[in-house]
């Protein structure tokens, strides 16, 4: 019973993080019709910035680690700022060109980012588990569960609600949706499409960065985490439909659950199992679920 509950919470935790990554990917695609292969690396960037920031601040001030959770938005914003630079500089020249160029370019960005992180933070993983540990544990229904993990789940939930409200209830959301439906029409209506593109891209990056920042106290920042995340984020958006935020939420829940089960039963082959899930989901998924791709 308690194991089952912990597993369920683990799936939710994983789903929350996946939703943030995949939701960002999907948002960017929905608005700009660009698939960003470097998205996973931006997630990793969030993780590294957070880990680095925590160790810096903790080292300098000796602050109680639990308070350092305030660094989460800082790390996310740093990744968002990166996105705000990348979009006008690299992506904008490519909108009129064939999709393979976008793929090639974002692949180039992926290579650059992966190595940039290795250059700055080295090849050894960064961990900030004291932050995670400082939150202590929760006792529910006879089970013990890390309190920080619950915070992440709630954060994921809050992000989903906020995002939904943002896209469907604000003025910017209206512009976002108008641009995604018809770029030329939006421009004719006086919407500054270029500005919307930068903002949408940056927002997608913020989500990825936040995902990286929240996960790092739990599992650390490792090289290669970006590509793993990219593949899983794709599974998520393919299940839910690329370009749809609700879809990203549903997809994240499914993948989170399946992954938890898979790791429970085949821990030896965690890596292969992750990728196999990706393949199996893509194969068995009926074509009708492709969303707005």
């Amino acid at each position: 019973m308690d194991v089952l509950l912990a597993q369920l919470l683990n799936s939710l935790l994983y789903a929350a993080v996946l939703f943030l990554i995949a939701g960002g990917l999907s948002l960017i695609y929905g608005v700009m019709r660009i698939v960003n292969l470097a998205h996973g690396s931006l997630f990793a960037l969030g993780a590294y910035v957070m880990a680095w920031g925590v160790s810096r601040v903790a080292g300098a001030s000796g602050a109680e680690p639990a308070y350092l959770i305030v660094l989460l938005p800082v790390a996310a914003a740093a990744v968002g700022a990166t996105g705000a630079v990348v979009e006008p500089l690299f992506l904008r020249p490519l909108y009129a060109r064939a999709e393979e160029y976008q793929l090639l370019l974002t692949f180039g960005l992926l290579l650059i980012l992966e190595d940039a992180m290795r250059y700055v933070w080295g090849a050894t993983p960064l961990t900030v588990s004291p932050l995670w540990a400082s939150f202590g544990s929760l006792h529910v229904l006879g089970a013990t569960y890390p309190r920080y993990n619950v915070v992440v789940i709630l954060l994921g939930l809050a992000a989903a609600i906020l995002l939904w409200a943002f896209v469907f209830k604000t003025r910017f959301g209206v512009m976002l949706r108008a641009t995604s439906q018809n770029r030329r029409m939006a421009a004719a209506l006086g919407i500054n499409v270029s500005a919307v593109y930068v903002q949408a891209f940056a927002l997608g990056c913020v989500m990825a960065g936040l995902a990286g920042a929240v996960i790092v106290p739990i599992q650390g920042a490792v090289l290669g985490m970006g590509v793993d995340a990219l593949i899983l984020a794709f599974v998520v958006v393919v299940i839910g439909g690329l370009g749809s935020l609700e879809g990203a939420l549903v997809g994240a829940l499914i993948v989170g659950l399946v992954r938890t089960i898979a790791i429970q039963y085949f821990p030896e082959l965690e890596l292969a199992v992750l990728y196999l899930i990706a393949a199996v989901v893509l194969i068995t998924r009926p074509a009708g679920l492709l969303g707005r791709a």
Binding site: V35, E99, L103, I231, F234, L271, A272, L282
Partner: peptide, 22 residues
């Protein structure tokens, strides 16, 4: 096709890589 094809080829080849390591 397109990005889905790219990611799928990436994922499948990574399975082989993971197997070679394991």
């Amino acid at each position: 096709t397109r990005i889905f094809f790219s990611i799928l080829t990436l994922a499948l080849s990574q399975v082989l890589w993971a197997l070679a390591l394991k």
